[in-house]
Computed example of a mutant assay.
Amino acid sequence: MHRTGTTRRGALTATGAFALGAVLTGCGSGQDEPRNPRARAEAASLRARSTLRTAAARAGVSLLARYDRTAATHPLTEAGLAPLRATVGAHLAALGGPPKGGSPAPAPPAPPGGAKAALRELAAHERRVADERAAALLEADSELARLLASMAAAGAANAYLLTELAKETPA
């Protein structure tokens, strides 16, 4: 008589095959991390790059808002701020635009009462952003490091020009 149905040997073979398949594909590990060390390093590099880019873009959005607020509060400074603001806008575009998602950037504080003081405060903020970007160079990959270095240099130049503009602006 021929036996039909599942035998003990067949059940063990199927269980072993299923377990081997799970081990080989990584099922049940609950992790999305690649097992290959090189792939893990590349994934970590992409995350770090994204984090640095997002931080630089947030700083750019904040800086643009400060330029806009200063120009709106002190219309006398608008013509001098326009080319510097355009540079900041170009940097933000090079970073891929404003960051998506997350909480919106808080409104910048109102600039000081006088145009000179407002320009000095804007220069100080521009200098801080340039310093942050220069510090981020140590963590960035080569492509992003070149972009951040260029942006930091331009920010330092903008800070200098804002300081000079403050000296030329009437009280």
Rank of each mutant, 00 (worst) to 15 (best):
M1E: 04
H2G: 00
R3F: 13
T4A: 07
T4W: 08
G5S: 00
T6Q: 13
T7K: 02
T7V: 01
R8K: 06
R8I: 14
R8Q: 11
R9K: 11
R9W: 05
R9L: 14
G10H: 04
A11S: 06
L12Q: 04
T13G: 04
T13H: 05
A14W: 11
T15Y: 10
T15S: 10
T15F: 07
A17M: 07
F18N: 02
F18I: 01
L20P: 00
G21C: 01
G21P: 00
V23T: 06
V23D: 00
T25R: 04
G26S: 11
G28Y: 00
Q31S: 15
Q31W: 04
D32L: 15
E33R: 15
P34I: 04
P34M: 02
R35T: 13
R35V: 12
N36E: 12
N36H: 15
A39P: 13
A41F: 12
A41N: 08
A43E: 09
S45R: 10
S45L: 08
A48R: 15
S50N: 11
L52R: 06
A56Y: 06
A56K: 02
A57G: 09
A59W: 00
A59S: 10
S62E: 11
L63N: 01
L64E: 11
R66L: 08
R69D: 12
R69G: 05
R69N: 13
R69M: 13
T70Y: 09
T70P: 02
A71W: 03
A72Y: 04
T73S: 10
P75G: 10
L76Q: 14
T77S: 13
G80Q: 07
G80K: 14
L81I: 04
A82W: 10
L84M: 12
L84I: 07
A86W: 11
T87F: 07
V88N: 01
G89W: 03
A90Q: 15
A90S: 13
H91G: 10
H91Y: 09
A93V: 09
L95I: 05
L95T: 04
P98A: 15
K100R: 15
S103H: 05
P106C: 15
A107N: 14
P108M: 09
P112R: 03
G113I: 08
A117D: 14
A117Q: 14
A117E: 13
A118W: 00
A118D: 01
L119T: 04
R120G: 02
L122A: 08
A124N: 02
H125T: 15
E126M: 10
E126H: 11
R127E: 07
V129M: 00
A130W: 02
E132P: 04
A135T: 12
A136M: 07
L137A: 09
L138T: 13
E139F: 07
E139S: 12
D141S: 06
S142H: 13
E143H: 09
E143C: 05
E143K: 13
R146F: 12
L148H: 05
L148E: 01
A149R: 14
A149K: 09
S150M: 07
S150Y: 12
A152I: 00
A153E: 07
A153Q: 12
A157S: 03
A157V: 05
N158I: 00
N158K: 01
L162G: 00
T163W: 08
E164R: 12
L165N: 05
A166L: 09
A166R: 03
K167W: 12
E168C: 03
P170Q: 06
A171V: 09
A171K: 14
A171F: 15
